[in-house]
């Protein structure tokens, strides 16, 4: 039976009273409600918005005490790197992490070896430091997944995500990042405090949203 995604109406408490013949439906409704809570509501997530410089060299505004007016940053130069370690507090039921990234990319550079790309990897946290790599990660590349949206000399904004299709690992595991897919948390690491490392080349990151993929039980 499918897992309900919304809060379904619960039976009246009267059906549980002494002397009432309990049919199956009320108990099944309770079981389904718990399944909804476990599989849908109480999924882990971390929604990171990335604060960037608000300095603007025009119209005498300069700092203007800090806010983004809508003109985004200058397009990143060749070789520009951006790296973030983002904490993900997984739950014992966490298994696959879906990702959505908001970004601005550099213009295509024919002399660039790789062009704009975003590498996303999953690490454990051990002894107060980033620990062992748990998932070799995924690579968003241009033009396969990333777009370039220029507004003059400024970047436009675009979004990219992993989708929710689950990945079958090859026997022997991975030794390099794959195409974009949800990141995998092995059973031994579920419920742990984890770190998602996002390394962007010729890409400016504005937001990274991490969330457990919804799966029917």
């Amino acid at each position: 039976m499918a897992t309900p995604t919304n809060f379904q109406p619960l039976p009246s408490a009267q059906v549980c009273a002494n002397g009432v013949i309990t049919m199956g439906a009320p108990v099944a409704q309770m079981a389904l409600s718990l399944k909804q809570l476990n599989q849908v509501k109480f999924r882990s997530a971390g929604y990171y918005h990335v604060g960037r410089s608000t300095w603007q060299d025009w119209n005498s505004i300069n700092y203007a005490k800090g806010a983004t007016f809508g003109g985004y940053q200058n397009i990143p130069a060749k070789g520009y790197m951006d790296e973030f370690d983002l904490f993900y507090f997984s739950l014992p039921t966490s298994e696959w992490i879906g990702i959505e990234i908001t970004y601005g990319a550099a213009s295509s550079n024919p002399t660039s070896l790789t062009g704009p790309n975003i590498l996303v990897e999953l690490y454990g946290i051990s002894g107060g430091s980033i620990g062992a790599k748990i998932d070799e990660g995924i690579l968003f590349t241009y033009p396969a997944q990333l777009q370039i949206l220029q507004r003059g000399q400024l970047t436009g904004l675009a979004r990219v995500n992993t989708g929710s299709r689950l990945y079958t690992f090859p026997s022997g595991g991975l030794s390099a990042p794959t195409f974009p897919r949800p990141l995998y948390i092995p059973p031994a690491n579920r419920g742990d405090e984890l770190a998602v490392r996002v390394t962007a080349e010729e890409v400016i990151i504005y937001a990274v949203h991490l969330f457990d993929i919804y799966q029917e039980a």
Partner: peptide
């Protein structure tokens, strides 16, 4: 020069799925 306040530029960015 981090943002102290929200600006119109955040309309395209500041939301969570």
């Amino acid at each position: 020069a981090p943002a102290v306040y929200l600006g119109v530029g955040d309309i395209e960015v500041l939301f969570s799925p």
